[in-house]
Design a binder for these strands. Sequence first.
DNA 1: CCTCTTAGTTATGATTCGATAACTAAATAG
DNA 2: CTATTTAGTTATCGAATCATAACTAAGAGG
Lengths: 143, 143
Amino acid sequence: MDNNSLFHNFVVFTTSFHRVTHEFTKDAKADVISQIQYKILEYIAVSQPVTPSDVNDCMNMSMPNTSRELKKLSEKSLIEKIHDKDDRRKQYIRLSKEGQAMMNESFAIIESRFLERIQDFPKEDLDDIEHAIHILQTKLFNE
Amino acid sequence: MDNNSLFHNFVVFTTSFHRVTHEFTKDAKADVISQIQYKILEYIAVSQPVTPSDVNDCMNMSMPNTSRELKKLSEKSLIEKIHDKDDRRKQYIRLSKEGQAMMNESFAIIESRFLERIQDFPKEDLDDIEHAIHILQTKLFNE
DNA sequence: CCTCTTAGTTATGATTCGATAACTAAATAG
DNA sequence: CTATTTAGTTATCGAATCATAACTAAGAGG
């Protein structure tokens, strides 16, 4: 197989991946937040604590817009901002108790759909899948 | 490894996947279309011909909004609508020549970035990656 | 026929989001 | 001590998007 067909497979894979993860995450978001806000919370949940600049880079937004969205999340008491003691320009963001609870609910829905999908898989398929994820993670997606 | 840690790895994988594919697709979109319009064209490109209802389901939009976006794309001559002969309520959507050309350009940018990323990988890593994609595609993402 | 359902359209008002400019406050470098 | 850089905020405007209601037009069932 040459690199062009590898790319082609990657594109097909990408499409399937989006379709399936979309299936998993459909309606898992609480109604009180927007799609972007959910994405930000998801990122914070996985990577906390993060700085506004981190969110900014990762979400590919401009700082003013990041700041505004974080402010909205803060006003909804879903996140907490803590100023750095050493560099008082910086701040660290974490999920609040409510924010954590909300994301736990979302993750629980997603997890149950994921587990439902793999529930009848034989052990060796699960091992293959785990190994495949590990390979892509370390070889293609590492920094 | 139990299924819960498999799910956890899957979530981490999902995050990395989004980060990297975003890196690939960044600025690959032509300026004359919006982000959503690009997503719709991408979907049509991979799955054509599609119906407005297909787009609707896949993009998770409401029919009125789907209809409007498709109309915009049609006005920009990027897609073509063909009415079904048997059921004249239905219509099939394809990329027009211009639409196809535009998407080819985008895909070329994405492909070059993909190839750049894997260019120095040893052959056995590429084989591993290909195999991993194949495994996930057939075992986890099949219909 | 008449009714119901399906497929899609048009119109509209409310939000959300993105881009940009102008700003504060703190750290750092010369 | 001043100049510059870094981190983040506020304000504003236009464009994009969403949600809803009301609609047309065609097929399907009885």
